[in-house]
Every structure is written in C-alpha cells, then in structure tokens.
Nucleic acid binder design. Structure first.
Lengths: 352, 352
DNA sequence: AGCTCGCTGTGAACCGATTCAAACCAGACC
DNA sequence: GGTCTGGTTTGAATCGGTTCACAGCGAGCT
C-alpha cells in the first residue's frame, strides 16, 4: 500500500473535517454520537493508525518511556522490566529498554538517545550515584525515576528495596544456623546496592554481638555467574574454608555454587551459601539456593506508575521515595544439619 | 529549564539560518568548515539535542526499530536482544523491546503500538506461523524480519537457526551414549521451534536405524522452568523411567533436572538430560547441562542488520533468509559411564 | 568588462497531527 | 420575527525539523 493513510483520508471518507476526527480520537465526549460512529467506522474501514510522532510533536507529550538497567542478562532486571512494561502498556505507553552493562559510557549514550526521542520519562538504575546524566535529563524537562536505587534528593522520585535490611536478614540467618566464619562476595566498588547489602551484613554481626572479623569481604569484578565461579575458585584454593558465603546477588551465588559442587565441597554441610534476588534459577538450582527475595515485579510497576503520574501532574507533583521490604527465603543451601544455637527455627521455613 | 532549546536557538546563536544548522547535522559536507565549526560550537554551548520525532515526521524515516520476543524471561531472548541492541545502536537506532509472552493477543497489541510509533522495522518471533500481523505491518510500509523463525515467503527476510539439525545432533548424541528409551519434552503445539527440534530428533532415530518408538513425546504447557519441573515430576512418577530426556529448551531442562535431583535420581547415571539453547545457567547448573548452542548474539545482530539494510535500499532490496548452524556442547548431564557402542567419543568433547 | 560556474547559505513550504477561536445551527424564549 | 444559548463542527495556525529551489558571491575564462 503506497500512500500511508492519514487523518485527512479518514476525514474525507467520514465527510467531516480533520479537526473532528482528531476530536473523536482525543475528546470523544465533545462530538455527537452519530458523527463519532461515522468517524470510527471510517477509521476501521481504512485501517488507520495514529502517527504517534506527529501527535507528539504538536501536543508535546510523548507516550514512550525509557528504561535503563544495569544488565538485561540478569533475570532480576528482566522481571523488573516486565513489571514496567505491564504498567506502561496499561497506560498506553511504549517502553524503550536500554542496557548500560554497568558502563557509565554506554549509560550516557542511552540517556542522550532517550532525550532525543523526547521520551515522557526515564526509569534508570544508575551505574554510579549522583550521576550528572540525571540532572541533564531533568534540565531538558524529562522526568526521572531512580530504579532500585534510593536517594535523598528531593527533586527526584525513587523506588528501591531496603538492601541494608536484606543484607541483615541474610547474615542474621547464617549466624542463627551456627556459622562462624562468613565471607561476603560483593561487586565492583561503585555499585550502590552491593555496598548497602554489605552494610546490612555488618549490622547483623554487630547486633548479634559478634566480633567484626566474623565477616570478611571478597570483591568480585562484576555481578555475574562468571565472576561467582572465579570467586568460588579463589575461595576453595584457601587452606581453611569459611563456613558460609553471602553473595551480593544470585548470579554470583550460582557461579560460586557451581565451583563448590565441582570441587566436591558439600553444600550446605561444608559451606552454606546465601544469594540475593531470589531469581527463578535460584530455586531450580541443584542445591536450591537460600536467597533474599525482592518484589521485582512490583518494583517495576511502581516505578512506571510514578513516572507516568509525575508528568501528568506536572507542577504540583510531590516527589516520592518508595521503599519495599525484602524477605528471606530459606532453602537447602543454608540449612545446616548441626544443632542450632537459637530456637529461631520458624524463620527458616520456606515461604511459598 | 523552561524553554526547550530548538534548532532556531542554535541558528540565532551561530548567526546562520535554520537550514544551515540542519545541513550541519545531516549533510556536513555541503557546509563550509568555518560555518560548521561555528554551528557545532553553538550546539555544544546550548546543549541542543535533536528532536527525533519532528525529524522523523518530515523525513519519513524513523530511527527506531521494534523487537517482539516470546519471553524476555528466557536468557536466550535477552542474549538475542543484546545482539539486536548492539547492532542497532551502532547504526544510531533505538530499540523498543516488547514481550508477547507467547500470547497472540499481546503480540497483536504490541504490533499495533509499534505501527503507531512508525518504527523503521520490526523484528519478531511470531507466536504462530503465518500470522496476519506480519502482512498488516508490511501493508503499512514497515519492514519485517522474522527472528528465530524460518519462512519460505519471498517477501520477508528471516534469520533462524537450523532447529531440525539441532534436534538431530542432540538425539544422535544420546543414542551414541547408549540410550535406548528417550523422551522429548516439547512445548505447546503452536511453537514452531519446538516442532522442528522434534522432527530433527525423529530424523536421528531413523538415521540410526532404530525403531520409532525409541522416542516418546511429552508436551509441556510452556517453555519455562515451572513446566520443566512439572514434566519431571510426571516422568518420575512412572513405573519405568526412560534413560534419557531431550528438552526443547534449557528452561525446561533445568526444571526437569531440579525435579530429578530432588527425587534422588542420579544424572547422568540413571537419566541423561540434554537441553537446548546453551544459556549461561546451563553450564552453571549443579550437573552441568549438555545443550545445543545457538549463536544467539549473532542471530540478533544479523536480524538488526537485515532490517536496517532493507529500509535503506528500499526498492531493489533482495529478501534474504539467513540460517545459522547450531552446535552440540556436551557436559556431564549426558556423559554416561557405560561402555559406548560407537567410537564417536571425539564428538563428546566440551567445546570451549 | 561580461559571463559562467561552483560553492554556500537562505527562506519558505511541508510532514501529520492537535488546538482553539470562530462559525454554525437548532431550538427556546421574548 | 429576532435574539440568545449551548452543543457541534470547522479551518487555520502551529509544533520542530528537513528539503529544495533559488540567491549571492567570488573565481576563472574569454
């Protein structure tokens, strides 16, 4: 079909003016029922579809939002993305998904691209805190919501999960299982989430009245399976093994678990492992992984809802900081057969 | 910053006309070096960013492509998406990622959304073959490339992997390992890829001169971990177990492996398992999974390249059908300890 | 000097929709 | 009959770039 069908063609066929067709589409209540029917019939007959870019040019409001995540390969983020996409499409918005791959340069590129697309808003998990990109976007009138990253800044919305609390949950559980030498595998220094989880882990040690050296830190170069595997190999090469490992996310934990099993070290008897995120593969691992569950889907939905709300109520919009609470899901990888010190066994039940 | 910066502001500052600014951006060669510098300086000073929708309205060509996949939760598709995104951003295009979730209704909705966005082209893994959506898009002048789905239709490009060959590789390997009773876990009936893999599996049986009943089919309701788990439970409830299972993808295989391990059945001694896709989690599973590797990243890159090429060379474009070849990656889950019948042990080496 | 030519830069028309002031119209009311 | 009113519909201006026919100009040639 050579000539694309425009609003003019519809108007011609329905014998009304283009203004009326536009009204049918945007303010159906102001046009008489009979006319409306006629226009809708013409639209259906011609198979007309709105030209969104043209609409946006004139009206100024886009129906597209951008989503920039650290790693699309991480099921955590794909679940968040699903939540975003779901909420966005309910509101009739498209989502442009970008992957920064934990690189500030790529992040910058994607932010510029989204700005040139004049998106309605941007949901972003920034590579570094206090990134200038965010201010840059806001200066251009694009609303920004921080995703999985809390902030104190008053002129930004944010949606996050209490990572510090999550870290505390994980390590408190390990201590209750009788672990005495815990290693935490964290990510690269910049990543805010991993740092917070580490703080929570230290909190747990302190609250239990233990010596700080019960917890040791082992940084990994990235938050993925390969890094977890390498961290596991490093750990297993030691003369004395720790009795528990807390990983900053499940990808690290799965890699580490793999290294452990390969080396013949028993989990959880010789080494307890706790991950973070509770991705689907955590439960399906051969030694089902204890993990800290985050409401990924809700996180995405909430973020999308915020960004849409923000640009609808332009001026009087109140910036909000939503914080979700994580929960511990205990599975085999941390159920130690030894006698427990505490009687907090009820906490160890699997949450269905 | 209240007033958004437009091309007019740049023109004013650089003391040229808007036409010249546009030329600097689009055909830098026709403008004198000195003027060009002046304009670029003004752009940098003002922090001007192009208004893509406006540009698109006039020029007709969008810098956005749509990608519709069956399941963003499947690492196979996220890897494909990464390839697409990489190739697209090299060409300065944005990618709108949509998830059909194996539902024809959602697919239709996304296709309409992409059409209204007037995207440059659409890469799609259709839920069903011969979907009307594709023709509908083409009628509206949007080029379409079938992704991970071969086609005979002459007016469509397609990129696919030889699924039939992959299925053959998997089952030939199992037969060589001495398996006598093989169950193939497939997906829902509509999914083309699973059906082809099944055909390949039958080919392998035939080529090996075995009776057709060596291969049994067990359909799963979806190609995900949960379905694999359920299929595993069904299988394990039987009086006599098969000695091998070939799953239509790795998610199914991981779920099945989980059920197997949980029930105390040994892999591969009691039951060999082969998956498909070779996702990262396959190698990291506790019993590393034998799988059929597909060039996911290349698949995505090729598809993006095709769609961009198609719309650049509008008329004389030759529709192409690219087919990649899969390769078998053998790991523990199918290395049977029994004496081998054949000497094809060399095939069983892990491909680095 | 007069003319052509090539290189630059200009300005207005245009893409497809939205928006809004103004026109239109039928019925109610004076 | 004339005027007013409220509900509909119209037509033109507009959004921010792109494009293209044309103008300006200096150099080279006759």
């Amino acid at each position: 079909m050579k000539p694309p069908i425009g609003i003019r063609d519809v108007a011609l066929r329905a014998e009304v003016s283009v203004g009326t067709v536009s009204n049918v589409l945007n303010r159906p209540d102001v046009v008489a029922a009979a006319t409306r029917e006629r226009v809708l019939a013409a639209i259906a007959a011609l198979g007309y579809v709105r030209n969104e870019p043209a609409r946006q040019l004139r009206s100024g409001t886009a129906r597209t939002i951008g989503l920039v995540v650290l790693d699309v390969g991480n099921p955590f983020f794909t679940d968040v993305a699903r939540g975003v996409e779901e909420a966005a499409s309910e509101a009739g918005h498209a989502v442009i998904l970008c992957n920064s791959g934990e690189s500030a340069g790529k992040e910058r590129g994607h932010v510029e691209l989204l700005a040139s697309q004049r998106v309605h808003g941007v949901l972003i998990t920034p590579v570094q805190s206090g990134q200038a990109s965010l201010r840059w976007l806001r200066d251009r009138g694009i609303s920004v919501v921080l995703l999985d990253h809390p902030t104190a800044e008053a002129d930004l919305c944010s949606v996050a999960v209490d990572d510090r609390h999550g870290g505390e949950l994980a390590v408190t559980h390990l201590l209750a299982e009788g672990c005495e030498r815990i290693v935490m595998v964290t990510g690269p220094p910049g990543i805010h989430q991993a740092a917070e989880r580490h703080r929570g882990a230290r909190d747990a040690i302190r609250l239990a009245g233990r010596a700080p050296d019960v917890l040791e830190v082992l940084p990994a170069p990235a938050l993925n399976v390969a890094s977890g595997l390498r961290a596991g190999e490093q750990l297993l090469a030691r003369a004395v093994l720790p009795d528990a490992v807390f990983c900053a996310n499940d990808l690290l934990a799965l890699g580490l678990l793999q290294a452990t099993v390969r080396a013949g070290v028993r989990v959880p008897e010789d080494l307890a492992i706790v991950g973070y995120d509770d991705i689907e593969f955590a439960a399906a691992a051969a030694v089902p992984l204890t993990s800290v569950r985050q409401p990924r889907h809700e996180l995405g939905r909430a973020a999308a809802a915020l960004v849409i709300a923000e640009s609808q109520a332009a001026a009087e919009h109140e910036h909000r900081h939503v914080v979700f609470t994580p929960e511990l899901v205990v599975r085999e990888s941390s159920r130690r057969p030894r006698p427990r010190r505490t009687t907090s066994a009820t906490r160890s039940e699997e949450i269905a």
